[in-house]
């Protein structure tokens, strides 16, 4: 199934794909997607259709996924 993926600029080049339409397996979770993209879960924040959902959330067809790096501080 296809999803829409947007990566933060600092992650571009670190993952093996570009922004845009991405084909993934059905019933894939956020955690599994990150593994596929070779991104460490604790270093990024993922939004699904602009919402932050648990890592176990199953991604659905046409979902819009955005991935940003987490910043340490405060």
């Amino acid at each position: 199934m296809k999803i829409v993926l947007r990566l933060h600029h600092s992650l571009k080049g670190k993952v093996p794909i570009e922004d845009g339409i991405l084909q993934i397996k059905e019933n894939m979770t956020v955690e599994q997607l990150l593994k596929q993209l070779d991104l460490k879960r604790t270093t990024v924040v993922v939004t699904i259709n602009k919402k932050i959902l648990p890592k176990e959330t199953t991604i659905e067809e046409n979902d819009s996924i955005e991935i940003y790096p987490i910043l340490i501080g405060g």
Partner: peptide
């Protein structure tokens, strides 16, 4: 705004798990 999106989404505590991993 673009560079700090992680802070907007999760706040300063967004890095808590990573801090634990780093030993911080």
């Amino acid at each position: 705004v673009e560079k700090t999106k992680g802070l907007k989404l999760l706040g300063t505590s967004g890095g808590t798990v990573m801090s634990e991993e780093l030993g911080d």
